[in-house]
Amino acid sequence: MYSPAILFLLSSAFISASMANFGTDVDVTWGGQRAVVTNNGQQLSLSLDRSSGAGFQSKQEFLFGKFDMKIKLVHGNSAGTVTAYYLSSQGALHDEIDMEFLGNLSGQPYTLHTNVYTQGKGNKEQQFHLWFDPTADFHTYTILWNPQQIMWYVDGTPIRVYRNHESSGVAYPSKQAMRMYSSLWDAEDWATQGGRVKTDWTQAPFTASFSNVDINGCVWSGSGSSCGPSSSSWMNQVLVASDQQKLAWVQKNYMTYNYCSDAQRFPQGLPPECSLA
């Protein structure tokens, strides 16, 4: 069920929209010529060298939506680099939904790092290894964010679900509009094996490529009413039985870290959402 506050926002401040062009629908926010748009706006590449990385953001802000993008990650020795794809609002008390791809030594798997921030607080990490080479070709990465839950997908396979437990006192990102962001940057102090493996700058420039951006969401505009609770299929989407099986398969075979299993990190007790269905 939607809270009265969410229903008010949906009926008074949002309109449905779809965006699918890097040339017209995103802004390069840093890195200058290290961000290159090609193929009539259907593809964008980011490069990282010793001087700088690069990043871009959606022109529009959204409160709830389905965000799809194909990404081909840095090939070869990408240790120390992070390719980020996430949603975020602004300010110290921001909300954020993360997918970050942590680089690796050649032949070792990337780590896909996921997290959720509400009111500036995160500490809800789950990490995964991918079951394919994400540098050989483009793969589709999806963040689906609706009032009931957040779901992360890889090539249509769900890997994580974070449910709305506001009724039990657990904060959920439901009140701040967020932009979509992507970036390629140097995080050698922590990205690869906890920072033990540093960036090899003789391999620079590092390049990640992005394609087929597709956002269907509720645009923050201050007016409009076309994005109500039943306006889009993703607004009420949940995992069906077959998706639950896929989720269990991924988490059994490819999850490498789950904050809800880290009792040592939370000596006063695991976060409350860890025990909620």
Rank of each mutant, 00 (worst) to 15 (best):
G91I: 00
A92L: 01
A92C: 00
L93T: 01
L93I: 00
H94G: 05
H94P: 01
I97G: 09
D98A: 11
M99N: 12
M99V: 15
L102K: 05
L102V: 08
G103R: 01
N104C: 15
N104P: 02
S106Q: 09
S106K: 09
G107L: 08
G107E: 09
G107T: 06
P109Q: 01
P109H: 00
P109E: 00
Y110A: 11
T111D: 11
T111Q: 13
T111H: 11
L112A: 14
H113S: 15
T114D: 12
T118C: 08
Q119C: 05
Q119S: 13
Q119N: 15
G120I: 01
G120Y: 00
G122P: 15
K124Q: 14
Q126W: 06
Q126P: 07
H129Y: 10
H129F: 07
H129C: 02
H129N: 08
W131E: 01
W131Q: 01
F132I: 07
D133V: 09
D133L: 12
P134E: 04
P134D: 04
T135S: 11
D137F: 05
F138V: 06
H139Y: 15
T140Y: 02
T140L: 07
T142M: 09
T142A: 06
L144R: 14
W145V: 04
N146A: 06
P147E: 03
